[in-house]
Design a protein around this nucleic acid. Structure first.
Lengths: 157, 157
DNA sequence: TGGATTATCATGGGATTTTACGGAAGTCAA
DNA sequence: TTGACTTCCGTAAAATCCCATGATAATCCA
């Protein structure tokens, strides 16, 4: 199975076009897609990206359409309404809508980081991602130091 | 079953290419892989290498993509964003990304050690690995002298 | 057995292809 | 036409493929 792995930093040109990393494109093609679905991350820091399959799974998970129920997981609705499906053009690029770029603090003419997450990926302002990653690493380390202990004593892995 | 055993030291050429030891290549083929997945060891000293199965298991364990949860197990995210799947080329070589080489203190044009660990292997700066090995041996010796005895000897994992 | 022949392997150096990315020309609707 | 978007083409750098070489290990055969 193909997974979205690793991190690639690409340039957003002044028209707002970005090359989707070729590895990520291959994964999409492997899954049988020629489009990507984008939507804001739940806390708005970045942009979530995936194939249409993930959207379908999500819809299934939240129960699909039920005209009798008034409240479905409300964020899921917002998510669907914010999501957009983008075609990857002949040169492997997509055009991320301006408001999404602004929300994720990515400037046209600047750079953005494509971050693999396995079955999906995210698009970040590179600096913001670096900061977040550092945080996550520290959290992991302190958690390990705190009590994980487990084996003979070496903290190597 | 085939295991990654022994240690091989190969040269990293100036383009960043390294021959994967032929024994290790055979093991990979035996397991049904034509690619290797690399990611930094948890403490950043070296590079971990395994087959794609490990990544897939990890993804399954963390439950896959859920846009509704603010952050899933953060170490898993860091791992996916740092990991990379590399194809072994026709000559049995891989191209390790530059930043990984730097983090592991391996210079292009220098050497690196492929260290078997059974169902996975690691890639080290040869000197760093030698030092670490010596340390582990001393630790084991003093522990045996102290009386513990117990398992195979190394407390590595 | 021992010496010659033949694989296999690690490694170097081109040559070719791919990729990211800029710009120009074409398309379409208002 | 104007502005927004799309398709097309050119380029430089990087990744990948292809073949040559030397070294070592395996094989063969008188």
């Amino acid at each position: 199975m193909a997974l979205f792995l690793s991190t690639y930093v690409n340039k957003v040109d002044k028209k707002g076009r970005v090359s989707v990393p070729s590895r990520f494109r291959s994964v999409l093609v492997d899954k049988g897609f020629e489009t990507v679905v984008l939507f804001p991350t739940i806390n708005g820091d970045a942009i979530d990206a995936c194939g249409m399959d993930v959207m379908e799974n999500l819809l299934e998970k939240i129960g699909g359409f039920d005209p009798l129920s008034e409240d479905r997981e409300s964020y899921a609705d917002v998510l669907m309404s914010d999501a957009i499906e983008l075609a990857v053009d002949g040169d492997g690029r997509i055009m991320i809508p301006l408001d999404m770029l602004i929300d994720a603090d990515i400037k046209a003419g600047g750079q953005c980081a494509f971050v693999g997450r396995g079955d999906s990926f995210q698009i970040w302002n590179p600096d913001a991602f670096a900061a977040r990653k550092k945080l996550a690493q520290e959290r992991t380390r302190s958690r390990r130091a705190a009590g994980a202990g487990s084996n003979g004593g070496s903290d190597d892995e």
